[in-house]
Write a protein that binds this DNA or RNA. Structure first.
Length: 570
RNA sequence: CGGGGCGUAGCGCAGCUUGGUUAGCGCGCCUGCUUUGGGAGCAGGAGGUCGCGAGUUCGAAUCUCGCCGCCCCGACCA
């Protein structure tokens, strides 16, 4: 490809809206262009990277015996109704001219399960894993940071079908390994985390995180075992012995007019927030539960749901809170509550004599003691883990930020059950197929790579997914000998199968260097002032200096370097 | 959805507080000459519904109201 005939809309100035480095570089390098919030064009350079990523994913899928198909973007609404996912909030609903309802595909469990129930009837058809690479649509409440979170994005989604859990484990582990290989070849180091399953549902699941400050997820890593977990999921250890109430004065109801929030109450009563208990009322199935956490902590609703053995908990409506506590939201407390199961965070055992809501408007108790003024039905770990918290292993949890580039799930029979995707087990019994699903963010991974590989001057692509492997710059496009030499190298490299761009634009040399650094080609060849002596400069993007090389050996040497890099990431 | 910020040429910005001729600047773009290894110099030029709509006023980029869009923080997140 000749740059003079290509599309390289690089920007000298930094677009004001981009705050994350990788987002800025992708915009400046002319890889992507925003169309609207969370919606992007992939310009030619960006598309090249996307296609290279896809190609690596396909190769690894093939190694793992996964079979590619392509499902529709228009998902019939009735299928989502079968699994209850017609209520999912990020759905993009639409209708055809006859009024028939669809949703733009946000993930394809329903369609793939529909395919399974139509074609997979026998244990002889299993196991099998099918996958696609496709644009997904999710009406995200807050798109951010370019391709990190968008309303549409490119994703690989794979689905495994097995006769039982043991086989599913095998499929799961095989895909886990395939993901490891994919990320390795993209140049991404990932930390695998235990995670929450969210609306996808199911049981065992793991996230693949690229650790970087620009990430939007919080990951906690046990410094003793190295095991990591998403903050939504992370368990907290520590041994707590219950502190008694000796010497603590009797609980006393005090006036706290209009003080509802932790901040308002603690500043009014002049106490630290860790001396206050937040009482959060939730519905868990048909049960009413009061969850107690320290004033300076956050309840983790996922964890609470898990402790209670339900799929999810929902914060109570304010009318229900009033009915149960007799007071407005903001004044709930554990003393005198009835018909409510009280579950308290472990950490609360370590102190006593708290400030709690009075279950009367504008009143709170001080010196409230568990074991004296109110009874805790269960002590559990129900709060959001923080940096420095004790790990279950006895180590300490340390927080890092991460970009979630992959998420794999064991679904069990969640979809096959509700959609009746059954198979004959060979002994005359019909059973639901055991499923797994595996998502890898293609566009998000692209940006994660940029986030990890860049410097002040621009992007530094790994050879495996660089938009071009080599750029050949003709320093002065009007100098015939330079242009001739550049074209010769260009055609030689092309012939050797190297992915090369010839920068023959009539820009000044400096501008072409700046563009090359910004765009981030791994290797740069410059045909310039060395040409009269039969030499050109070769330079790696990640190195400070290049070296002059005789033209005769340049082609084969560069080809070798490229091929070496390729095998490293093959 | 809550909080904050922004919307003026392709990009980055000034002007708005205190309304007043033809709305500026830098980069980019076009033409010419010179230059040609780290985003060149000089000269000339094109490019604007000042986000949209109402209102106030003799007069609105500027003041008021409504709407729309974009960014950041939070909530949410498959």
């Amino acid at each position: 490809m000749r740059a003079s005939r290509y599309f390289l809309p690089t920007l000298r100035e930094v677009p004001a809206d981009a705050t994350v480095a990788s987002h800025r570089l992708l915009l400046r390098g002319g890889f992507i262009r925003q169309q609207s919030a969370g919606v992007y064009n992939y310009l030619p350079l960006g598309l090249r990277v996307i296609e290279k990523i896809k190609s690596i994913l396909r190769q690894e899928c093939a190694k793992a015996n996964c079979v590619e198909l392509l499902m529709p973007t228009l998902v019939p609404f009735e299928l989502l109704e079968e699994t209850g996912r017609d209520k999912v909030e990020v759905l993009f609903p639409t209708t055809d001219r006859t009024g028939r309802r669809f949703a733009l595909g946000f993930t394809h469990e329903e369609i793939i399960t529909d395919i399974a129930r139509n074609y997979l009837h026998s244990y002889r058809d299993l196991p099998i894993t099918l996958y696609q690479i496709q644009t997904k649509f999710r009406d995200e409440p807050r798109p951010r940071a370019g391709l990190i979170r968008g309303k549409e994005f490119i994703m690989l989604d794979a689905y495994s079908f097995d006769p039982d859990d043991a086989h599913c484990d095998v499929s799961y582990d095989r895909m886990w390994h395939a993901f490891d290989e994919m990320f390795r070849r993209l140049g991404l180091e990932t930390l695998v985390c235990e995670a929450e399953a969210g609306d996808i549902g199911g049981g065992r699941n793991h996230e693949f995180m690229v650790i970087t400050e620009a990430g939007e997820d919080s990951v906690l890593r046990d410094d003793k075992t190295g095991i990591a977990a998403n903050a939504e999921r992370c368990d907290i250890g520590g041994n707590y012995s219950t502190v008694g109430h000796d010497g603590i004065p009797a609980a006393e109801l005090v006036a706290t007019p209009n003080a509802r929030s932790v901040k308002e109450v603690t500043s009014l009563l002049a106490v630290d927030s860790h001396r206050l208990i937040k009482t959060l009322l939730v519905r868990a199935g048909d049960r009413n539960v009061a969850a107690l956490v320290r004033g300076d902590r956050d309840l983790n609703p996922h964890k609470l749901a898990r402790r209670l053995g339900v799929e999810r908990v929902a914060m109570m409506e304010s009318s229900d809170v009033q009915r149960i506590t007799g007071a407005d939201v903001g004044f709930a407390g554990p003393i005198g509550l009835s018909g409510v199961e009280i579950i308290a965070d472990n950490e609360l055992q370590a102190q006593n004599g708290y400030v709690v809501g009075g279950n009367v408007n504008d009143k709170h108790f001080v010196n409230a003691c568990h074991g004296r003024d109110f009874k805790v039905d269960r002590w559990e770990d129900i709060r959001v883990a923080l940096d420095g918290d004790p790990a279950v292993s006895g180590g300490v949890l340390r927080e890092v930020r991460g970009i979630e580039v992959g998420h794999i799930f064991q679904l069990g029979t969640k979809y096959s059950g509700s959609m009746k995707a059954h198979f004959d087990d060979g002994e005359g019994k019909e059973k639901p197929i055991v499923m797994g699903c595996y998502g890898l963010g293609v566009s998000r991974s692209l940006q994660a790579v940029v986030e990890v590989y860049n410097d002040e001057a621009g992007i530094i692509w790994p050879m495996s997914i660089a938009p071009f492997e080599v750029v050949v710059i003709v320093a002065n496009a009007e100098d015939e000998s330079q242009m001739k030499a550049g074209e010769k190298i260009y055609f030689d490299l092309l012939e050797q199968g190297v992915d090369v761009l010839l920068d023959d634009r009539s820009e000044r040399a400096g501008a072409k260097f700046k563009d090359a650094d910004l765009i981030g080609y791994p290797l740069r060849v410059v045909c310039g002032r060395g040409i009269p002596e039969g030499k050109a400069e070769v330079k790696w993007r990640h190195e400070e200096r290049g070296e002059d090389m005789p033209l005769e050996e340049l082609g084969s040497k560069v080809t070798n370097w490229v091929q070496n890099e390729r095998t490293k990431s093959a």
